[in-house]
Design a protein around this nucleic acid. Structure first.
Lengths: 244, 244
DNA sequence: TAGTTTTGTGAGGAATTGGTGACACTCCCG
DNA sequence: CGGGAGTGTCACCAATTCCTCACAAAACTA
């Protein structure tokens, strides 16, 4: 697994440790965010799209525990790795009970921290790719006008069955598995074409174009797969209700 | 969360530790399986339906590392918690790199072990329940009148969804991430347009203007994004309370 | 292996965006 | 209350981004 496209947020008030983490993570990771207090940290966690949160327990403003608790209460599922100077067993347990996924005490070994970070990111990938695979073998997906049967790889749009090529099908299935979500071209290259696939983002355009030609009512005015200018594409299932 | 319907497999050759685990887990957990060597343990892990694996590193027969490696190679995604008497950092790192999700060294605190077990099971639940409701989109940031979903890039103001361009969205998101904070125009150019972006500060004005036109109730009297004279702009989330 | 389908790449044209300038307006301060 | 700096508004046009189509490369099939 590569960390190069992973976004990690660090909430830590000790500049020394923050620098240490920056030093070791910066080169390996995609985006690396730093916040030094609980209030800004929570906001950053809520607004950004992060793959992992490294969270100090002792923080000015909101405490690490509360940051974690709040995120979980709001339904965020991102992995949280707590760091703390406290060594008491009770603190460790409390952190885990509150919704953190892991706990490491300062002074920690950077190598071990990195290993744990990788372990969590790996698990997230494992789970999401397993979920994708379960969709592949699962029952038919019915999204308004579009009906997809992953087993037979048959797609029907507004009752008509359409022939899709392998790539087109994978692309559509990926969109259908994450409706409304906006994907950047680079993300689609990773998710549909596979990791580290060398190729132009423009390739995605071409396939979107072909897919639209096959499933859109009017390919000039796409409704199912819409363009998000400056970002990427989004799949919006259309209700099958007739507008007469 | 309750552990009562969770199945845990323990692969451990030391009868003392096995008993200790049995003592503490038996009453809390649904099914509890024990194996005392790597070969049988691997077979049990492959055939049974387990929610978590507690795995000793040193085992007769196949080693814990190999058990874990094999399971991962076969596509199993169940969480693996490694236990070992070794204290060397290298062993811990190796265990994690091989595909384990966590690592705890003997002698361990039973309370902490239980907390970590619960943390892993909780995460599994979190992920699966999040997958179910993923159709509605992920967690949105809710700031009074304004609601922002970074994953779908959908913004709703007072219930109405508004179309924002990429820049407008990024600008709003940045404000939402730091409510009440005053930003100078130069800072916004750095943060939203990207560091080292060449351009006039006046550009920020124009965008604020466009953003206001879309999200303010009365763009002539901005309430969400207010001007701080001589300095810059500030975002103030409004309570959604109706003033009738 | 030859033919056929699928996939990737390239170039030109179309569309949207958003930076910029001009000017009106507002706010602060003397 | 008047001057000036700072800010709001608007429209234009260039730059960016995207679409379309055609062709080449690759993969599959018979």
């Amino acid at each position: 697994m590569s960390l190069s496209d992973k976004n990690i947020l660090v909430i830590e008030d000790d500049p020394g440790i923050a620098d240490l983490l920056r030093l070791h993570l910066e080169s390996e990771v995609g985006q690396l965010g730093f916040e030094s207090n609980g209030t800004d940290g929570l906001a950053a966690a809520q607004t950004g799209v992060w793959d992992l949160l490294l969270l100090d327990l002792r923080l000015p403003g909101i405490s690490g525990l509360d940051v974690c608790r709040t995120l979980r209460a709001e339904g965020h599922t991102l992995p949280v790795l707590m760091m703390t100077a406290k060594t008491g067993e009770l603190d460790r347990v409390l952190g885990l009970e509150i919704g953190a996924d892991d706990y490491i005490t300062k002074p920690f070994s950077v190598i071990e921290l990195l290993a744990r970070v990788r372990a969590h990111l790996r698990r997230a990938d494992l789970v999401s790719s397993a979920a994708e695979r379960s969709v592949e073998g699962g029952p038919a997906i019915n999204l308004g006008e579009v009906e997809i049967d992953p087993r037979t790889r048959v797609v029907r749009v507004r009752g008509e069955s359409v022939d899709l090529t392998a790539r087109e099908f994978d692309l559509l299935l990926h969109f259908a598995a994450h409706p409304q979500q906006v994907f950047r071209r680079s993300q689609l290259l990773d998710d549909v074409w596979g990791y580290g696939h060398e190729g132009y983002e423009h390739t995605v355009n071409a396939h979107i174009n072909r897919l639209r030609a096959k499933i859109e009512k009017n390919p000039r005015k796409p409704e199912l797969i819409s363009t998000v200018w400056g970002v990427g594409y989004r799949f919006t299932p259309q209700s099958t209700v007739e507008v007469v």
